[in-house]
Design a binder for these strands. Structure first.
Lengths: 117, 117
DNA sequence: CGATAATGATACGGCCCCGTAACGATCGGG
DNA sequence: CCCGATCGTTACGGGGCCGTATCATTATCG
């Protein structure tokens, strides 16, 4: 799997997927939220607020607020760590997994189009 | 140029680039703004407010406001159409071209990493 | 114990974006 | 010439996200 990609192809891919996202109407997550969501679903648990903040290079309130809004959307959930009750463990949800999967489908579909063009 | 890509690679690519964008600090454009910017720089001129709105499936004020904020960042500029003074022609700028190029570099670099992994 | 550190959440003031509705400027057909 | 259509912009009310500073809760160490 080489996954070589030219500059113009990269831009077209980025544009097509963003157009899809705009038209999808649904969530319209911010860049930060997207990075958080994908980190939660691609990296090994457990995930904490502090850990994510350090990982992304942002402050803790950014993570807290992102979890609030994504929690309302059902994309993630939170649970107190029973062994250290200061910690909060961020958990995945079915809806979140579906959203991530949907994004993967979008990207791969657009990439395939570019490849055959 | 096949540009085949697996689901997990697509997600990793999307995540890595978003992490880069978060850390870049700079603009942090919204999904809509990104779609608008790339449409302006990838499709043939002339571009108008109405045309972009139709192209993205959003209302005109969305385009006007996006052009306002991206204009402040120097990424695009506007000019009245002299032949039909109701129209506004959206023009590219040097800074905008550089920003687009930078994004292309990010995507291709991350894609290359995934390919060799 | 008590003091200190660490965690996540919250308050605050500021800024940006949204959609709907209305607006002024301009064009064009009758 | 005038009136309707079209263009882009602006006003409005509502909501979200930002960073800084502060908070309550919990753990830890002396």
């Amino acid at each position: 799997m080489v996954l070589e990609i030219k500059l113009t192809q990269a831009l077209r891919l980025w544009r097509e997927v963003h157009l899809d996202l705009v038209r999808d109407t649904q969530a319209d997550l911010s860049v930060r939220q997207t990075a958080i969501l994908l980190t939660i679903y691609l990296e090994l648990p457990p995930h904490t607020v502090r850990g994510l903040a350090a990982r992304l290079g942002v402050t803790k309130p950014v993570i807290t607020r992102a979890l609030d809004s994504m929690g309302k959307l059902g994309l993630v959930s939170r649970k107190r760590d029973e062994y250290d009750k200061r910690n909060v463990v961020i958990q995945r949800t079915v809806a979140g997994a579906l959203a991530v999967e949907h994004l993967a489908d979008l990207v791969t579909a657009r990439a395939r189009e570019l490849g055959s063009a």
